[in-house]
Computed example of a mutant assay.
Amino acid sequence: MWNKFLLLILALTTQSAFAWQAPTSCLEGQIKTVTLGKTEIERATYCTNTAGSELLSQNCTRNTECEALRSKETLERKNLRMTAVGTPGFHLCTDLKGEGQIIEFTVSDKKWVKLDRCLFSDGSFIDVGSLLENTYKD
C-alpha cells in the first residue's frame, strides 16, 4: 500500500514539471554495467514498469530536483545533435552532463532486461528513451 501511495505522489508531482508517466513499481534489484570489458553489478533501488521499458532512480521519487528530471528545463528541441556516430539519446545525455550507459537490470520476476540509461552526477538516472521523449515533448 505504501508503494502505491508513493507512486501516486510521484505521478502528481512529476506531471506538472515533467510529463513522464510514473513506472508501475519501485523495487530493490541489481544493475549490471560493463566498462572496458569489466562487468560490475550493483544493488540499487529503482522504479520500472513490468516490461522493464522505463527506468527511474528511486531518489527522483522523493526529490523532483534530481538531475534526471531537470532535463526539460535545460535544452530546446533545436539543440538535438544528429550524427552518424552514436545515438541521439546518448548525445542528449552527454549534452546534459550525464553518462550514457547500456545496462541490464532485474525486474519483478528477477529477469534481466537490457536498456540504455543516462546517469547523472547526483546519482539519479533515467532510461534514455524517456529522457528523449520528455525533453522534447511539445
Rank of each mutant, 00 (worst) to 15 (best):
R43K: 09
R43Y: 01
A44N: 08
T45Q: 11
Y46E: 02
Y46I: 06
T48F: 05
T48R: 05
T48A: 05
T48E: 05
N49C: 08
N49K: 01
T50E: 13
A51P: 03
G52L: 02
G52I: 03
G52P: 08
S53P: 02
S53G: 12
S53R: 10
E54M: 12
E54F: 07
E54G: 09
L56M: 04
S57Q: 03
S57H: 04
S57Y: 00
S57L: 01
Q58R: 08
N59Y: 00
N59M: 07
T61I: 01
T61K: 00
T61P: 00
R62M: 07
R62A: 10
R62Y: 13
N63D: 15
N63V: 02
N63L: 01
T64I: 06
T64A: 00
E65F: 03
E65V: 00
C66F: 05
C66G: 06
C66K: 04
E67N: 12
E67W: 09
A68N: 02
A68G: 01
A68Q: 03
A68I: 03
A68W: 05
L69M: 12
L69I: 09
R70Y: 02
R70T: 07
S71N: 10
K72M: 02
K72R: 11
E73T: 14
T74L: 14
T74Q: 15
L75P: 04
E76D: 03
E76M: 01
E76F: 03
R77D: 02
R77P: 00
R77Q: 04
R77H: 03
K78F: 07
K78I: 06
K78R: 09
K78G: 00
N79C: 06
N79D: 15
N79F: 10
L80K: 04
R81N: 08
M82A: 10
M82K: 14
M82C: 10
M82F: 15
T83M: 10
T83F: 13
A84W: 10
A84P: 00
A84H: 07
V85R: 09
V85L: 07
V85C: 01
V85Y: 07
G86A: 07
G86D: 06
G86N: 06
P88E: 14
P88G: 04
F90G: 04
H91Y: 08
H91C: 02
H91A: 14
L92I: 00
C93Q: 08
C93V: 09
T94Q: 14
D95S: 14
D95G: 02
L96H: 04
K97P: 00
K97G: 01
K97A: 13
K97W: 03
G98F: 07
E99L: 09
E99A: 08
E99S: 08
E99R: 08
E99K: 11
G100P: 11
Q101C: 01
I102S: 12
I103E: 03
I103H: 05
I103G: 03
E104V: 04
E104W: 13
E104G: 11
E104F: 06
F105I: 08
F105T: 10
V107N: 11
V107P: 06
S108N: 15
S108R: 15
S108A: 15
D109G: 06
D109I: 06
D109F: 11
D109H: 13
K110M: 05
K111Y: 12
K111L: 14
K111D: 12
W112C: 09
V113Y: 04
V113A: 09
V113H: 09
V113N: 08
V113T: 13
K114I: 03
K114Q: 12
K114S: 10
K114A: 10
K114P: 05
L115E: 12
L115Q: 14
D116M: 11
D116G: 12
